[in-house]
Computed example of a mutant assay.
Amino acid sequence: MTETLSERAVDNEGFRRALAVHAAGVVVVTAQTGGVPVGLTATSFSSVSLNPPLVSFYVDQSSTTWPWLRQAESFAVNVLASDQADLASRFARKGVDRFAEPTRWGPGPGGVPLLSGVSAHLVCAPHTTVEIGDHILVVGLVTGTGIDTAGRPLLYHQGRFGRFTPHS
């Protein structure tokens, strides 16, 4: 009898433990739909292509933010700075007004919410979405950028937010 691919897959807990040792950058993806700002924290952000300029992130199919984000004409990827762990946690929580105080933000091109104090932001137009497993791959065409601070990035590692300290 031949094994199916799903039978060959490692169990969820083993998979999580293995991925926990990989440090990832942290972003908050923001958009505005019907005058309502929405956002979520993502650690799956990646550059995809230089020409055309494309970036991607994944969102859980069960996300309550995804239906709103999916309708947006543009979105921003806010690259968090090392001192913004509280902001990352806030945008990862359910049942809170993520844009209320102490969150600082303002409208960017097309009204897309841009968070204050981030290392950089990339304004994007939706390009492609693909359902993959229990997530949705979202690819955006970068239509604008801004670098707010030259600080160090916020990282996610072993279930915690932390800072990068370079070797001398």
Rank of each mutant, 00 (worst) to 15 (best):
E73A: 12
K94H: 13
C124W: 07
A23C: 04
P37W: 03
E131H: 13
E3L: 13
T4H: 06
V36W: 06
A150S: 15
A24C: 11
T143S: 08
V138A: 03
A72C: 02
S44P: 01
T41W: 02
G110M: 06
E73V: 09
R152S: 15
Q32T: 09
F45H: 06
W105Q: 08
T30W: 12
G34H: 11
P126K: 03
V48W: 11
P126Q: 02
P166I: 00
V112T: 11
V138Q: 00
S89V: 12
T33L: 04
T145C: 07
L80Y: 11
R104W: 03
V38E: 14
T4S: 14
G140Q: 00
V28G: 01
Y58C: 14
A120D: 10
S119M: 14
A72T: 03
L19P: 09
G140T: 02
L114M: 07
T41K: 00
I147D: 14
F161E: 00
S56V: 09
A125S: 14
A18P: 08
T165L: 14
Q32V: 15
L80S: 03
I132V: 15
K94P: 01
A81V: 01
H127A: 13
S6C: 09
L114R: 08
T2K: 12
V142E: 06
R8T: 12
L50R: 10
F161M: 00
L19Q: 13
I132R: 12
F99S: 06
V130G: 07
R93L: 08
G39K: 05
I147A: 12
V79H: 00
G151C: 02
L114Q: 07
L80G: 03
H167D: 14
Q158T: 09
I136D: 10
A23E: 07
L69G: 03
H127R: 11
H127Y: 12
P102I: 07
M1P: 13
S89N: 15
A42D: 02
